[in-house]
């Protein structure tokens, strides 16, 4: 049994502790906003926050989340109106959208640490998040806009 907090709620999973957290979140708890992309932490589609830090949940065994606080895209903000989500809508970022939960979670973590990110900051914080549609021009604009909304 592994206990952790998922989007503010105490939960327990009886899955094998070696199971990647991603699959527990998706299949046991039905939160499918967090995506499977690569399984090796190379694409960022599965990014969640563990105790506030962005982590690839596909490469994180369940027991590494024990007693931790996990936040997924569904729990990022009430009503889905986090500054990053507001900015993403304003800039109309997604194409296929599959990577966007991960992009948004990574950006949310970035602007908490770097309130006014430069291009270099964005490169450093978001280069772990692959976008196969290549909407990086809009992600860059939206990340800056998100920081602006968060500062205001």
């Amino acid at each position: 049994m592994t206990d952790f907090t998922l989007n503010g709620e105490a939960v327990t999973s009886d899955a094998d502790p070696a199971t990647p957290l991603l699959w527990v979140i998706r299949e046991r708890f039905g939160l499918t906003g967090t995506k499977y992309g690569c399984g090796v932490g190379a694409c960022g589609a599965c990014t969640v926050h563990l105790n506030g830090q962005p982590v690839p949940s596909c490469a994180l065994p369940l027991d590494a989340a024990a007693d931790g606080e996990i936040t997924t895209i569904e729990g990022l903000a009430p009503d889905g109106n986090h500054p990053v989500q507001q900015a993403w809508i304003e800039v109309d970022v997604p194409q296929c959208g599959y990577c966007q939960s991960g992009q948004i979670m990574a950006t949310a973590a970035m602007i908490r640490e770097v309130p006014d990110p430069t291009d270099a900051d964005i490169d450093a914080y978001l280069s772990g998040n692959l976008c196969r549609c290549g909407v990086y021009n809009r992600i860059r604009a939206a990340a800056k806009r998100a920081a602006e909304i968060a500062r205001s």
């Binding site: 895209i73 889905g80 993403w88 966007q100």
Partner: peptide, 8 residues
């Protein structure tokens, strides 16, 4: 589709 895609 943007709102749904930004909220998972």
């Amino acid at each position: 589709d943007t709102p749904a895609k930004t909220r998972g």
